[in-house]
Amino acid sequence: MTELQMHTSTAVELRDVVHIFGSKQAQVRALDGVDIRFARGSWTAVMGPSGSGKSTLLHCAAGLERPTSGRVMLGDHDLAGASERELTQLRRQDVGFVFQSFNLLGSLTAEQNVALPLRLAGQKVSMTNVRQILTDVGLGDRFRHRPRELSGGQQQRVAIARAMVTRPAVLFADEPTGALDSRSARTVLALLRSMVRSARQTIVMVTHDPVVAASADSVVFLNDGRIVDRLIQPSVREVTDRLAALEA
């Protein structure tokens, strides 16, 4: 557990966050006064119609983009006021990323891909720990396999192991099951659930799939850059109906 995780029960908080793209003549208000907090040890799915601000919320919360106004707190750290060097350090230590495209390096083995964040951060690499993390995600017999030798579901589990190797306070996931078949998707979702239950991992996940969203503890709905609803432990039907109403 990192220092950030020990000192606060809130993993991430957005306070009146506004994010505007474009010039004055063609401005797009991607986020329009968003207020939301994500508790440590929670799993939240973010949904909404195309262009509602889902990815922008994820990027601002993770420190990948700076909001036009408002505050983004990662634990006790104000990302909006952090320098680029501070942001880089926080992303390396306290933030993990998992994307639909896996983003594994094809020339590296599974264990080398997982160890990469530690090497980039200048940290000592324990291959014993790296292999344990791969074992934890069900790939104990795939240490030396390269991405082309793994299925899509296995590649995504390598990506999750890579995101978790630094023991981040928050794992951000953008459509983590979007490129997977239904069986592989269920395996990945079960893995994410076990991380929340056993390690009190905080997960913020963007998805368009109601089945995937219903796996989370809560689902937040965005429309036109604003949070318009939040469901706690909803059924797939409830998520589907709410999303359909927004897209109508």
Rank of each mutant, 00 (worst) to 15 (best):
A45Y: 00
L90E: 00
L246P: 10
R144E: 15
R15C: 15
A173L: 10
T187F: 06
R131E: 02
R91M: 02
G96C: 06
R91T: 01
R66G: 13
L189W: 11
D16G: 14
A199F: 10
G81S: 11
R37F: 05
V95N: 07
A110L: 12
R144Y: 09
P168C: 00
T135H: 13
L134F: 07
R85H: 13
R226F: 09
T177I: 06
P210R: 06
V236D: 06
D209H: 10
M6Q: 12
G22I: 15
D35S: 09
Q201G: 03
F102Q: 01
T10F: 08
Q154H: 07
I20Y: 11
G53Y: 03
G225F: 08
S215E: 08
A80N: 14
E84V: 07
F99N: 07
V170M: 05
V72F: 12
V28T: 15
D141I: 06
A169M: 06
V17G: 05
H7R: 09
G178S: 12
V34F: 10
A216Y: 01
R131D: 08
G225K: 07
N113R: 12
E175N: 12
S151C: 04
M47Y: 03
H59D: 12
L139D: 02
P234L: 04
V17L: 04
V236S: 09
R119P: 05
T187E: 14
T8A: 09
R131G: 05
R142H: 08
L134I: 07
V206C: 08
T68K: 13
V98I: 13
A159K: 00
L139R: 08
L150C: 08
R91Y: 05
A62C: 02
R230G: 15
W43Y: 10
M1F: 12
G51C: 07
K54H: 10
V114W: 00
V46R: 00
Q93F: 01
K54A: 04
L58S: 03
E84H: 10
V72D: 04
T8C: 07
S198T: 14
P176K: 04
M164E: 02
A61D: 00
